[in-house]
Amino acid sequence: MRLQTATRIAIFAVLELAAEPERQLSAAEIASRFGISVNHLAKVLRTLGRAGLVEALRGVGGGYRFRGNAKRVTLLDVILLFEPVGPAADGSREPGQDTPDGRALRRVLNEIDDIARATLSSISLATMLKLVGQEKSQEPLRRAARRAAVDVVG
């Protein structure tokens, strides 16, 4: 499963803000952490703001702050703000969908979609932050392994 760029940016932004809900971060600060375009991020943050997940604070020291409940907001909640998960939500037709072959294929694809939705709807931002923490704690080991690999090749 691949996520669109806007969706990935939204997940990164919301995780960054939810990690410290009292902290305010500018779009530029968030963008620089993930190497993404500030303009693209600003559009994404507007969508997140309309959904009530972040709030924009104006003035000196302004920026963005997380507004949701990290234990209740799931990855699926964020993703669905930017793209559908599963069959085309716009009702568009797929070639051959009403043939026996098309229906059989849809049954198999629905199985995959169901699992994707169940997975994404069960992972809260709080759980994601734990996973991020695990990845961070393993970074020194990864760096050491990369250095060792370079030494062997070099």
């Binding site: 799931t74 169901d114 699992i115 939705r117 169940a118 709807s121 069960s122 992972i123 759980t127 734990k130």
Partner: peptide, 18 residues
């Protein structure tokens, strides 16, 4: 059950993965 979101979220929060 795939639609048991609350209990699945609980087990996810304990670090359980597929």
């Amino acid at each position: 059950a795939k639609d048991a979101q609350v209990i699945m979220s609980f087990f996810r929060s304990q670090g359980m993965m597929a």
